[in-house]
Amino acid sequence: MDLALLRTFVTVHRAGSFTRAAALLGLSQPAVTSQIRTLERQLGRPLFLRRARGVTPTTVGDELAHKAAPHLDALAEIVETGLADTSSLRTLHLAGPPEFTAERVVPALIGPADDGQGFALRTSFGNAEEVLDGLAAGHHDLAVSTARPRGGLLTATALCDEEHVLVAAPRWAEQIGTGKLDRNGAPALDHVPVVEVHDSLPFVSRYWASVFDARPAAPGTVVVPDLRAVLACTAAGAGLAVLPRYLCADALERGEVVALHHPVVPPLRTYFLVVRTGTLAMPHIARAHEGLLRAAAAWN
């Protein structure tokens, strides 16, 4: 069987689209379609179901991808590094949410200046859907995600839990008053403006549902698409916010913001380290994966 056909097949399986696979492979879409049809004729079974948007693998397609993809990745590793070149510095392509990646993941990977990490690093930011799609399509080697992927093409390992804290500037804490939130619950905060990363209030809504079993009444007054900016606006007095503890711990210690509530069970969100199945056999990916797991042991 022609390895080029398998390579095209795995790329289509990961990309979920002939068009995206063609762009990744540097081929025309008709060429990709022709190669997939040739492979299907050789196997005597359909590998994909054509949909209005993209393709869905059949059971046979999924089984073939799970068996073939790790071996094709290993062959690509041999070709890219060279059989005799042991001194080349591999590039690790990492993707994850901007704040967590910048504040925790990248510093943990870089390490001390006199102890190089053994790979060059290229970083991309995005939400969970974006980074997992990019990983599956081969754009990234390692992804940090708040969603655990389904299926067998991606392998996820729990990295750490992130505690969420309800905070505001001291003047808002004084206005709310000691004990009022404990007595009245979420309605005690209805008059306080909300600072968030999106109009849908993802962090505040999750906190309200988990802690108060309610929905937030106030809309987002200040919306900025970065949690570090949310912290800055909150410290400046723009309103309340729900932030990861790792991000606001220093501001809490300095008194720039105050924790408004201390639930017995604080809301948590889990981060996962995700790779394409089989790629942990590649030394630079394995080293980054192991290094982050060791670093995360001190984060919780």
Rank of each mutant, 00 (worst) to 15 (best):
D2W: 10
D2A: 15
L3D: 14
L5F: 00
T11V: 13
V12N: 05
V12L: 12
R14D: 12
S17Y: 07
A21I: 13
A31D: 05
R37Q: 14
E40V: 05
E40T: 08
R41T: 08
Q42F: 06
F48I: 03
V60T: 12
E63H: 07
E77A: 12
S87V: 09
H93F: 07
T101D: 02
E103D: 15
V105T: 09
I110F: 06
I110K: 12
G111V: 12
P112Y: 03
D114Q: 11
A120L: 14
S124I: 03
E129L: 06
H140L: 06
R148A: 08
L154P: 03
L154C: 06
L154Q: 14
A156N: 04
E162L: 13
V167R: 09
T178F: 13
T178L: 11
L181W: 06
P187H: 06
V194G: 02
V195I: 14
H198Y: 10
R206M: 02
W208M: 12
A209Y: 06
A209K: 10
V211D: 04
G220C: 05
D226V: 09
L227M: 10
A238C: 15
G239F: 02
V242E: 00
F272G: 00
L273H: 02
V274L: 09
I285E: 02
A286Q: 11
R287S: 13
E290Q: 11
A297F: 05
